[in-house]
Nucleic acid binder design. Structure first.
Lengths: 151, 151
DNA sequence: TATTGTTATACTCTATAACTATA
DNA sequence: TATAGTTATAGAGTATAACAATA
């Protein structure tokens, strides 16, 4: 079929906020994954690393609660970061294990932050700082409000 | 540990637009999935149904291009909707198969639209129509712009 | 040759249930 | 009893490669 005669279909979902949110999130995650590929770490793995950086000595369960990751799913995540020598595990007497960054982990965090900053700057570059904050605050309201989550 | 003495950790990712977007999308999808559970259809299956409703006679490949779903992944999707007697498949002479809604499919679309409207109204109920449009337009810009998608 | 539908497959992410070890 | 870490597993969602049929 000739390119110019191809029917272009109107997207009937275009006026749905949820649809726009999902498509935007997918596109953005794909882009960030590409930008983080130099580190050979997934977006989730990097986010765990950033949390450990901000809270040295935090436990797996605490990270899970913060990022909404199941306790069980934190296991292979932490195992990979440990195998890559990015984090240290330190027994806290009880069952809990305290996580901290290694020197390699600190370096990975610096690299990740540069990649993330580069990526963030590429999202809607025409947006000013005020609009950016407005957008972020609307998005935060969606998942912070318990109504959206539970009812 | 007593509830009041539990350490509440600050989320170091809170100022990242990409993070807010992902969390919002996850929360929203979970909520919408729950709201659509009466139909026993996933969010993606319903979105396909809405596209067929808007474009009777559209093909699987065309739907895939519109919603960014791989051709291969459209197969089990269309198969389920067909098995549930929600869509009809009509040969178009060639290899392509034209999809249309059955009466049951039309009814499902009506039910789905009510559930989606209910859900959308529950997201950011404090947002006015103008802010809603602004938010939707920013989100659309993120995934429509090729910069975000490819580099 | 390009496109459509298809099969098979694999990988990631996420969710649940059950077990143990410890406070 | 409640919590942390763990294991195993299952289900989505998504991605790629290859094939046959058709324009």
């Amino acid at each position: 079929m000739p390119e110019l005669l191809k029917h272009v279909f109107v997207d009937p979902l275009a006026d749905l906020l949820g649809y726009q949110l999902r498509r935007a999130s997918q596109t953005l995650m794909a882009g960030l994954t590409r930008d983080l590929s130099e580190l050979a770490l997934s977006v989730v793995e990097v986010s765990v690393l950033l949390v450990v950086k901000a809270h040295p000595g935090i436990t797996q369960s605490e990270i899970g609660r913060l990022l909404d990751i199941q306790r069980a799913n934190m296991v292979p995540l932490a195992a990979k970061l440990f195998a890559r020598r990015l984090i240290l595990k330190e027994s806290a007497g009880g069952r809990a294990i305290l996580l901290t960054l290694t020197a390699t982990g600190e370096e990975a965090v610096r690299t990740a932050r540069r990649a993330i900053a580069r990526h963030e700057a590429r999202i809607l570059p025409e947006l000013g700082e005020r609009e950016r904050r407005q957008l972020a605050s609307w998005l935060a309201a969606i998942w912070t409000t318990s109504e959206s989550k539970e009812g």
